[in-house]
C-alpha cells in the first residue's frame, strides 16, 4: 500500500494537501465575507476544502497553480448555494479528512466564540481615541453607511477616514491573534497535525 504522499503531481500528495490547507484561511475569510455567518462559514469551508481535495484525488486538478482559482470558484458556488438553501450539506463521508481538518492550524477568528468576538469589537471601539472615531466606526460597521456619506458628515478627508478604519481593523486583528496565542499557551504540548494523512478513498494509493 502506498502512502498518500506518493509523488504524483496534484494527486493526493502531501504537498498538494499542504497547498490546500494553506488556502483555508483565505477561503474562510472569503466565505465569512460572503455569508456574514460564522457557523455557515465553518461548514462551507470544510465543504469547499473537501471538494477541492476530492478534485485533486480524482485527477481533475492537476496543475498546482490552478488550486487557488479552483478553490475560489468552489467557495463562490458554495456561498451561492448556501444563500439558496437553509442548511449547507455536510460531508461526513470523509472521516479521515474530518480528523485532519480538526487538527489543522485554526485561524485567529476560529478561536473566538460569538461572545468573545463581541467583546473584542467593543474593546476596539472603546480604545479609539475620540468619540468622532467611535461614531465613524459605528456608522460604517453597525449601520452600514457608505464611506462618502460618513466622510461628508464628519468632514473628513479620505486619508483621515482610512486611517481610522485601518486602525480599528488592525487592532481587531491584534486582539484576535492575542486570543489565539493565549489559547496555544493554554494547551501547550499538544501534538502537531499528523500530515500527510492517508486518503480513505484509495484514489491516491
Amino acid at each position: 500500500m502506498a502512502d498518500a504522499d506518493t509523488e504524483s503531481p496534484m494527486q493526493g500528495s502531501g504537498a498538494s494537501f499542504d497547498a490546500l490547507m494553506r488556502c483555508v484561511p483565505g477561503l474562510r475569510a472569503l466565505l465569512l465575507r460572503m455569508t456574514r455567518d460564522v457557523e455557515a462559514t465553518n461548514d462551507l469551508a470544510q465543504e469547499v476544502t473537501f471538494a477541492a481535495w476530492q478534485a485533486i484525488q480524482a485527477g481533475r486538478l492537476r496543475d498546482a497553480a490552478a488550486l487557488p482559482a479552483y478553490a475560489l470558484q468552489c467557495a463562490r458556488n458554495a456561498a451561492l448555494a448556501h444563500a439558496r438553501k437553509p442548511r449547507p450539506a455536510t460531508f461526513d463521508e470523509l472521516p479521515e479528512a474530518e480528523s485532519a481538518w480538526a487538527e489543522r492550524q485554526p485561524t485567529p477568528l476560529e478561536c473566538c466564540e460569538e461572545g468573545e468576538i463581541r467583546a473584542l469589537a467593543r474593546q476596539v471601539l472603546a480604545e479609539l481615541p475620540t468619540e468622532r472615531d467611535r461614531a465613524l466606526i459605528r456608522g460604517f460597521y453597525v449601520d452600514g453607511r457608505g464611506k462618502p456619506e460618513l466622510m461628508a458628515e464628519f468632514e473628513l478627508g479620505k486619508d483621515q477616514f482610512d486611517r481610522v478604519i485601518s486602525r480599528a481593523r488592525g487592532r481587531m486583528r491584534e486582539l484576535m491573534l492575542e486570543k489565539l496565542n493565549a489559547g496555544k499557551r493554554a494547551v501547550g504540548g499538544s501534538a502537531a497535525a499528523p500530515l500527510p494523512f492517508r486518503s480513505n478513498t484509495g484514489a491516491s494509493r
Partner: peptide, 22 residues
Amino acid sequence: LERPDLAEMVDADSALRLGLAS
C-alpha cells in the same frame, strides 16, 4: 488564498462588523 496574513485582516474586518452588530 495564498496569503494567510491578508486573510487575517479580512477576517478582522468581518469580525469587527459581526461583533459590533451583535
